[in-house]
């Protein structure tokens, strides 16, 4: 079937010729009942054989249908990946532009602040909730973010420090540590920044900020021109956190390092 579709010219047989041939065979068979008779009676073996043949043909068809499906889905995935990457690059670019506009005098490593719509506990909460340790902690964390956004890095670090040292440990500890690290980067205290980021990775390896912290550690080593260590860390980001934005950014930085020949 398929063969005729694909290569009618190669066979040299037109459908009409085939039809004529079939018609001739039928006429011949009709004129010779004695010959046609034995063929009509199939033995059990023949039945099994033709059953197997049918099955095989059926499987071939199903197989090619499945292949078609897999190929199409692979193609769609690729298209989605491409679209997603483009969207991400676009968003990233916008955030960087915003960031640059907010802090024109910032250091070399850009800090991606959370967007202004970051979840914040409204100040007008009922008194009962406000008194709980949770709310108190959340308020301090939000205050720290607010200070950070306003460019008051030292006060922000102090505020985050309260969250970090809270007992029992705050759920916001990894986030507070991360932003402390970012604040130190801006302040130019790379050693303290490194310390903060490393605590995120060591204490909360499964936290969503762990990948970002690891990436920033890589960036810091890069800024310190410790390229071997930077490469090692960035590769870790790629293998430990595949599919994350951090992994994509790590990949980009690694490529940049390659093109810079470091």
């Amino acid at each position: 079937m398929k063969q005729q579709n694909l290569m009618p010219k190669h066979s040299g047989l037109t459908p009409r010729m085939l039809a004529q041939a079939v018609a001739a065979t039928l006429l011949l068979a009709a004129g010779l009942p004695a010959l046609a008779e034995p063929v009509a009676v199939a033995t059990p073996t023949q039945n099994v054989m033709s059953e197997i043949m049918n099955r095989q043909q059926q499987m071939q068809v199903e197989l090619s249908e499945l292949r078609d499906l897999v190929e199409r889905q692979g193609h769609e995935l690729e298209m989605l990946k491409r679209a997603q990457k483009e969207t991400y690059m676009d968003t990233d670019q916008r955030i960087r532009a915003l960031d640059a506009a907010m802090r024109p005098a910032a250091g070399a490593t850009p800090v991606s602040l959370p967007a202004p719509v970051a979840p914040a506990t409204p100040a007008t909460q009922p008194a009962i909730v406000a008194q709980s340790a949770f709310a108190d902690d959340q308020a301090k964390y939000d205050q720290g973010l607010k200070l950070l956004r306003e460019g008051q890095y030292q006060p922000a670090v102090k505020m985050f420090d309260q969250v970090i040292k809270a007992s029992p440990p705050s759920a916001n500890r990894p986030n507070a540590l991360y932003w402390t690290g970012e604040a130190y980067v801006v302040l130019g205290d790379l050693k303290s920044a490194l310390n903060a980021f490393e605590q995120v990775v060591q204490d909360s390896p499964a936290h969503q900020k762990a990948a970002d912290a690891q990436l920033k550690i890589g960036y810091i080593y890069y800024d310190q021109k410790n390229y071997a260590r930077a490469r090692e860390i960035l590769n870790k980001v790629k293998t430990q956190f595949p599919g994350t934005q951090a992994a994509t950014l790590a990949e980009q930085r690694l490529k940049r390092m390659q093109s810079e020949g470091v």
């Binding site: 398929k2 579709n5 694909l6 068809v61 090619s64 249908e65 292949r67 078609d68 190929e71």
Partner: peptide, 9 residues
């Protein structure tokens, strides 16, 4: 090249 491995060319 052309192939009908996916059912159709």
């Amino acid at each position: 090249f052309t192939s009908d491995r996916g059912g159709r060319p």
